[in-house]
């Protein structure tokens, strides 16, 4: 559904995206992760034909976005981190305006989508009177109007309260299940990505540092919570001995492949460390992500 091949983007002297190759298969909920400035929004901008790639090829729905913008974007909906609208116009008028850039849209269709996102009854109020949650729903409505096959969500949960975040998660699930949409989700909310996505890609300083399934991320890293009398010295020793490959300031260490906690405990005790606690952490995307970032920083 989305294909990026050897894509590079340079702004002045800054390389925003470097040699990015990525494939989002049809029907997937694909997570795009990375710190601020990692290149996620630039990559999404290139997918939507808003940012011109310096090199490489970006294809959506089988069409090159740079050369065949109209067919590539015909069945694509997008939502950005801060939903921007013409605040002085009503929600209805905003939808009328935005939908016509894809195709003429009948009032019945707008009404149907407004019903679906739960904005009926407020559609004729100016958007400036909408809450953040309502604006997010309006953004979703505008994205759904052209009957998309692909939905690109760039930080859609930013600024939402926990209730709003949970509602958004349910909506994304529903869109995938009931409409069969392919969804690309760029987010900082790692638990959300973990619950929703089947595959993820992680960017760091414009480079792809991981692409794979959520299952793979769970297999990759084994984090251990370690409390000893001298954590920095213990980490240095364990690293030198080849038992761990990463450590975090919050007292977590990532074990190398094949290493178990009993080996670590024995090694520490033999060298005179007082071990107060050692416990395997539940595998999570957050742990995987942080380890990946630490690895990349180390290299």
């Amino acid at each position: 559904m989305i294909e990026l091949r050897n894509v590079r983007k340079v702004f002045g002297s800054r390389v925003a995206v470097e040699n990015l190759t990525l494939t989002v298969p049809r029907g997937a909920i694909f997570g795009l992760l990375g710190h601020n400035g990692a290149g996620k929004s630039t990559a999404i901008g290139m997918m939507l034909g808003q940012v011109w790639p310096t090199a490489g090829e970006v294809r959506l729905c089988g069409y090159d976005v740079t050369t065949h913008r109209a067919p590539a974007l015909r069945r694509v909906g997008a939502i950005f981190e801060t939903p921007a609208f013409y605040d002085y116009l009503s929600g209805w008028r905003n939808l009328q305006i935005l939908s016509t850039y894809s195709a003429p849209t009948p009032a019945s269709r707008i009404r149907e989508v407004l019903d679906w996102v739960g904005l009926s009854g407020r559609e004729h109020s100016p958007v400036r009177t909408y809450s953040h949650g309502m604006r997010t729903r309006l953004a979703l409505a505008q994205a759904l109007l052209p009957q998309p096959e692909l939905l690109i969500l760039d930080e859609p949960g930013d600024g939402l309260d926990p209730e709003g975040t949970a509602e958004l998660r349910q909506t994304i699930r529903r869109l995938h299940r009931e409409l069969g949409l392919t969804i690309l989700l760029s987010s900082h909310l790692l638990p959300e990505v973990e619950q929703l996505c089947t595959r993820i890609a992680v960017l760091r300083e414009g480079r792809l540092v991981f692409e794979g399934s959520i299952e793979e991320t769970r297999r990759r890293t084994h984090w251990v919570r370690l409390r000893v009398n001298d954590f920095p010295r213990a980490v240095a020793g364990l690293r030198a001995a080849g038992w761990i490959h990463t450590a975090r300031d919050d007292g977590r260490v990532a074990l190398c492949d094949g290493i178990e906690t009993d080996q670590i405990t024995r090694w520490l005790v033999e060298r005179g460390f007082a071990v107060f606690e050692i416990a395997r952490e539940a595998d999570s995307l957050e742990n995987f992500y942080l380890a990946l970032m630490n690895d990349a920083r180390g290299s």
Binding site: L48, Q50, L73, A78, F80, A84, L98, Y101, Q142, P146
Partner: peptide, 18 residues
């Protein structure tokens, strides 16, 4: 500046026409 241009340009409209 407001971000509405980004909303429009995520749709299949040519920049010249716009």
């Amino acid at each position: 500046e407001d971000g509405t241009l980004r909303m429009i340009l995520s749709r299949p409209v040519s920049r010249y026409r716009l």
